[in-house]
Amino acid sequence: MPTIVSVDDSTVPGEGSSRLLLLVSSDNKHIVVEEDIMSRSRFISKQVEGFEATSQRHAILLPFSSFVLNKVIEYCSHYRGYYLLEDDPDAAPPGRSPVREWDQEFLDVDRNMLLRIIKAAHYLEIKSLVGSCARAIADMIRGKTTEEMREILGVENDFTPEEEHSPSSKCTG
């Protein structure tokens, strides 16, 4: 569960069609963003519904850094007003989303950052961004050795030396 703190109404204006939200990152940076932009996040949408139920505006504390949060906001701003199948599967007949070339450029970051972005997108429930990150990571894995895959995914080897040298012992059964 996110931590929610009360904020002064003067800090976050709540009137009009483009209301603002205050997002607080783990490094305690306050970022004001239009609610429309973040509506792609199901997590944020649910928080906003909660505000409306209680008639109180709050800041939303998020467990990742402002650097990552700004990347997510950049993504959401780029696709503001766009229909993306992953985020709204009920709005259109099933089919494949268009290939988004912009995403490839946007996600051309080091693998550490990529993992942080996908975790943030997962937390915020932005399925389209999760999908794009997952595709980018899967592309990184393509054609790599087991050791390189470990590095990319940040996973430790928990096989015993015997298991590691005996492929048939892995996951048989």
Binding site: G143, K144, R150, N157, D158, P167, K170, C171
Partner: peptide
């Protein structure tokens, strides 16, 4: 690529 991936960890 799934075969080398199987060697990453028990979970993978």
């Amino acid at each position: 690529d799934l075969l080398p991936l199987r060697g990453v960890s028990w979970l993978l």
